[in-house]
Amino acid sequence: MTTNTARPAVAAYTFDRSKQLFEQAMQVIPAGGQATRLPPYEDYPTYFQRAKGCRVWDVDGNACGSAAGAINHQTRQGRTQRLPRMV
């Protein structure tokens, strides 16, 4: 298992880039993504950039552990939790 971050994150994450992209996306896509669910909170990692195992990295560079995969529609993360063989 790779550990890229000390956990819990000592300095609380910020989500400025997610917010910015969300505002842009809202101009052209209802709810800003594939799902018709809005981000539940103002501070939210709405867009993920990459994933490995059960870890996801959002567009602000925040690393998160996730147990939300396998239902892909709650955020715009696509297939985040995949076997290395299939990448």
Binding site: R7, P8, Y13, G53, C54, A67, Q74, T75, Q81
Partner: peptide, 24 residues
């Protein structure tokens, strides 16, 4: 929890993934 590096959702059950190890 999201601000501290754990992505959870507040409206649904979670799903354990095969990549989750005890350390995770």
């Amino acid at each position: 929890v999201i601000r501290r590096g754990l992505f959870m959702i507040d409206w649904h059950m979670h799903f354990i993934n095969f990549s989750h190890q005890a350390g995770d």
